[in-house]
Design a protein around this nucleic acid. Structure first.
Lengths: 118, 118
DNA sequence: CCTCGCTATGTTATCTTAGACATAGCGGAT
DNA sequence: ATCCGCTATGTCTAAGATAACATAGCGAGG
């Protein structure tokens, strides 16, 4: 069955989609950027850049990180980060509601394998 | 105000988003791929590739094109193409419904200009 | 005061993507 | 028979994004 990918595109060009939302969840659950990156199978640098782009996109940060300290440091969602994540999840939920009929109809006519892609 | 970008992602990896949907609308309205491409400010080749990828993604074509003939030929949506477009529009409408409150809240905290981007 | 693991950032190589250009073929209308 | 404009496809280049590697700094805890 096809999935709906919902992204929020801001005037500035910044955007938040399922990937960044999931990354925020992992940061919240693991307490560190690097652990979140490992869980998602991406490099620390990539995770850091994604988080930095989100922090830059808003007037206040979504993730607060501290280097050094016990265990080398860590990161956590700010209250605002929690709020953004919650709002994204709600928007996503609203988007995928009541689309089943159309998605099933399209799925039944979609090919299993795409042409191309080595 | 931020916009919602809704894409349908199929198992095969093929996807349909607002760009392809708009392209289909232009093909329907202009009766040709090249006119649709001009209207969207893209090259004919790009438009053709996008349409070809859609035709390949399903078990039947969405756009039927004929080379040669009066005016050089033309293209039109098949009945199935009309159906896919209609279903996409309905899914999109459903997705953007009832998200205003959250989008406004996010917009009020978003920066006007993104950091980076030459 | 040293270790440990995480944050933070730079550099370079690679891979993918997008764009620019070029060209062949088609067939109704004139 | 020719023209016109659109379909269809190929090649090459520029640019942008991704990945790989490298390294500096931080601070609580042992």
């Amino acid at each position: 069955m096809p999935r709906l990918k919902v992204s929020i595109v801001f005037e500035s060009g910044a955007r938040i989609g399922p990937g960044k939302a999931r990354l925020l969840e992992f940061v919240r659950d693991t307490g560190s950027i690097s652990a979140a990156a490992r869980n998602m199978g991406m490099s620390y640098k990539r995770a850091w850049m994604l988080i930095d782009s989100m922090n830059q996109a808003f007037t206040e940060p979504l993730v607060a990180a501290t280097p050094g300290g016990a265990g080398g440091g860590g990161a956590a969602l700010t209250a605002f980060g929690e709020e953004v994540l919650e709002r994204y999840c709600r928007i996503h939920q609203s988007a995928i509601a009541r689309t089943d009929e159309d998605l099933v109809a399209l799925a039944s006519r979609a090919r299993a394998q795409a042409g191309a892609k080595v």
